[in-house]
């Protein structure tokens, strides 16, 4: 599972004057699969896009402006922008059973592993 942020994607969603951030993530492995957490403050379920294509999982979180129009900035320590990050999935992940949940600005994705095939005994017959 590698991070693969291509510049083209960055350009695609970054409008002039808008920021695109790589959100911090945690990934851990369990018997059943991989669990991924990403911090996406300001992203709602409606503005989050998750896509799996050719073994690549892409998350795009769009952030609505946090402040009312006409607010004059007095002091600014952080920028607000969209989130983009993509991951290469290993072959053992069952794409159709990926689950995602978003709560309090944190996304949790469960990537289930395909159950290991039971070893099968092959009968060898004598000619």
């Amino acid at each position: 599972m590698n991070r693969q942020n291509s510049n083209e994607e960055q350009r695609e969603i970054a409008h002039p004057g808008q920021f695109v951030f790589t959100p911090p993530i945690d990934i851990y492995e369990t018997e059943a699969g991989l669990v991924l957490y990403a911090d996406l403050p300001g992203v709602s379920v409606g503005s989050l896009e998750l896509q799996v294509q050719d073994n690549k999982l892409t998350l795009l979180g769009k952030v609505e402006p946090q402040i009312p129009e006409g607010a004059r900035p007095l002091h600014q320590e952080y920028e607000v922008g969209n989130y983009l990050r993509s991951f290469i999935l290993s072959g053992e992940i069952v794409h159709s059973e990926i689950e995602a949940k978003l709560a309090n600005g944190v996304l949790r994705i469960f990537l289930p592993k395909a159950p290991k095939a039971e070893p099968r005994r092959i009968q060898v017959n004598t000619g």
């Binding site: 300001g42 402040i67 009312p68 607010a71 004059r72 002091h75 600014q76 320590e77 309090n104 944190v106």
Partner: peptide
């Protein structure tokens, strides 16, 4: 390197507004 959380401060006609990003907190 910097204080947590980072804050932004704005002025509006009737109020000041402070915003901070605190993902995963309740």
């Amino acid at each position: 390197p910097r204080q947590y959380p980072a804050v932004n401060i704005f002025e509006l006609d009737h109020e000041y507004l402070i915003t901070a990003e605190l993902p995963g907190m309740l």
